[in-house]
């Protein structure tokens, strides 16, 4: 299949079923979508609509029951587990609802972890950590451990970790779900600003109307199917 160089994600008729005891749960039921470079897209839907499952499948964290997912020009189903790990390391940044920073690593170590996996030199790693912490307004927090930070600060560190390697795509699952509205807005401002400045592609799932308002493209998911889309300025 020919991929347009601007397309970061192409999902074709993606389905994902789960077996729960003797019942088959159809979490995603035939999603077709294309995400292009530099988009700031929200996947919106109520709880149980399949947002998280879809994000998992789009990044290779889970395998689709049916359909194809192309990420940055590569068909995910053709990759081994090891290739998928390397591919995610180099192409995808993750921001999780529960932050999921490594508790035994400091802020600086959490951010530089993926760079270490990539083999970036120590000086370069340090330079990038200093830069990104400045962008995130977290100067002076290098040596703090995650437990010494507030929820908003932890999520900013998580965004820094996701962005520091300049991946093609940043996926965020309900990034503001655990934050108060003021912190959520501030975080969204940061994400949007970074998107505009770096042209990095952001895809995030949410059901928070304030978050949806900031998205330039909104994909609405209901019962595992993308029922409609909205594009905003």
């Amino acid at each position: 299949m020919e991929q347009c160089s601007n397309q970061v994600i192409v999902a074709k008729n993606v389905k994902k079923n789960y077996q729960q005891d003797s019942i088959v749960v159809e979490a995603v039921r035939g999603v077709n979508l294309t995400i292009e470079k530099g988009e700031f897209t929200a996947i919106v839907g109520p709880s149980g609509s399949g947002k998280t499952t879809l994000l998992n499948v789009l990044t290779g964290l889970d395998t689709p029951t049916e359909g194809e997912v192309w990420l940055n020009g590569r068909l995910l189903s053709e990759m081994s587990q090891r290739e998928l790990c390397d591919f995610r390391r180099d192409n995808v940044g993750f921001v999780f609802q529960a932050y999921n920073l490594i508790p035994v690593l400091t802020v600086e170590e959490n951010i530089e972890y993926v760079m270490m996996l990539q083999g970036v030199s120590k000086n370069e790693r340090h330079r990038r950590v200093v830069d990104i912490l400045k962008q995130m307004g977290l100067e002076g927090y290098h040596n703090r451990f995650p437990t010494q930070l507030s929820g908003g600060q932890q999520q900013r560190v998580a965004i820094a970790r996701a962005m520091v390697t300049k991946p093609a795509l940043i996926l965020a699952d309900e990034p503001t779900a655990n934050l108060d509205s003021k912190t959520s807005r501030a975080l969204l401002d940061i994400m949007r600003k970074l998107n505009e400045e770096t042209n990095m592609t952001f895809v995030f799932s949410t059901h928070d109307p304030h978050v949806v308002d900031r998205a330039r493209r909104v994909i609405i998911l209901e019962d595992g199917v993308n029922v409609r889309e909205e594009t905003r300025n």
Binding site: Q81, C85, R89, F94, I102, V114, L117, Q118
Partner: peptide
């Protein structure tokens, strides 16, 4: 397990 899941998600190989 959750932590290992995160490490794997962000690119840590199983061997590591």
């Amino acid at each position: 397990q959750k932590e290992y899941g995160v490490l794997k998600a962000i690119g840590t190989r199983p061997g590591s």
